[in-house]
Design a protein around this nucleic acid. Structure first.
Lengths: 219, 219
DNA sequence: AACAGAACAACTGTCAACAGTCGTTCCCGG
DNA sequence: CCGGGAACGACTGTTGACAGTTGTTCTGTT
């Protein structure tokens, strides 16, 4: 059906479920669907032009991702975050990324890892002009890359399941405030620590970074 | 329909989806469904006496939980863990539980927390005669309780999404070997550290516990 | 005017059926 | 004997419809 968006090389036939999942995730994390909004299956399925069954599958994933929460009687609505929850999210995030840093420090050959991370930081710098969304994307990409490079799939998976919540936190605080955390130097410090292989320093840097970030967001 | 299992006080109307979810989770984590088994929707829906749509929703949750993985063409099968993945899982677990310990240590009034944790340990001791499954249940309950008592919902959620994998790891190694990690004293040490409020010592104890546990499992 | 009760409407839970796709088997021509 | 291809079978992707439940509104009675 949808022959659109199929790059010949990256052969990605994406199911309706995945499209719906991506669309909903985006709508929620950009605020298009405001927190607290009741997600009525019949409405949404009509809007997205898919059947309820297909939609429901996507909703289950969103639910487990923490973007939508179940109220009474299976009623689903967009999750609402308060300040404490944001701090909690960033605590867990710090723990995961600290582990990532430790594992990277324990690697024998960190050269290629460092190189890739520096590339990610360069992209952040380039994205500085691209507007707010681009910077956020680049920032998340850096942190996700760090988790991915450990080769610890479970770690990456856990981080990913937090990514939606992180995006919601950013939206909650407002983009202008959030970009204050996207400083290039702060991220360079992390990579510098990784390069020396000093795990303690790396985790400390990340912990400080996250604590600061959470404080900025809940302001 | 199923008026069974409805204690008047604990009003639990459980949907078919949740029942299927629980049944599948149990079947997988007990080895009843061996790793690598292809999960054919039509077969399973017939076995469980539910429709495919309902089953599919449950399968999505299992998938995101990491218990089943998608092969080519949406074909789902029971996930197979190797030694490295088990170590990875326990690394992440250690990171999460260390965070839990830190947050508990930071609490002003830890008395009630300590009390509840000691109660959980007592249950472990009592379960010692109840057979292998009971001991594992009690052990997981202790660690889950620790995460829950932090009040950090995100942390608890992340830990929960790891629980299935932990159970699979235990099954992978075999119950006899796994129960070697269920030592009461090892857990008492953790609570002792928490009681003193020494976060560094608590995280260290947990880290050692997890590393040891992983080693025993992959041994 | 206040209230009980009945029709109504809005949703979610669940199901059975259709459509599309990929691997497999079997047959036929070389 | 062997290779191409056509029919077949086995699944998953997707859909529309039915059933049950809960909140709501409207009406009739006191």
């Amino acid at each position: 059906m949808a022959a659109e968006s199929m790059s010949l090389l990256g052969l990605e036939k994406t199911s309706l479920r995945q499209q719906a999942l991506a669309a909903l995730r985006r709508a929620i994390t950009t605020g298009e669907l405001a927190p607290g909004t009741h997600l009525v299956e019949t409405e949404l399925s009509e809007t997205l032009q898919i059947s309820r069954g297909t939609l429901r599958e996507a909703m289950r994933e969103l639910q487990q991702e923490g973007l939508i929460s179940a109220g009474a009687r299976g009623r689903l609505s967009v999750r609402h975050l308060d300040a404490k929850e944001i701090r909690d999210i960033f605590s867990v995030r710090a723990a995961l990324e600290s582990l990532a840093a430790c594992e990277l420090c324990a690697l024998e050959d960190r050269a290629s890892v460092i190189k890739e991370l520096r590339a990610a930081i360069d992209e952040m710098a380039e994205a500085a002009e691209d507007g707010l969304e681009g910077r956020i994307e680049a920032d998340l990409n850096f942190h996700r890359t760090m988790c991915r490079l450990t080769g610890n799939e479970t770690l990456l998976h856990s981080w990913r399941s937090l990514e939606g919540n992180i995006r919601m936190s950013i939206m909650f605080a407002g983009l202008e405030r959030a970009v204050r955390n996207m400083d290039v130097k702060r991220h360079s410090d992390i990579v510098d620590a990784l390069e020396t292989g000093d795990a303690a320093k790396a985790t400390e840097t990340i912990g400080a970074h996250m604590e600061g970030a959470a404080s900025v967001l809940v302001g």
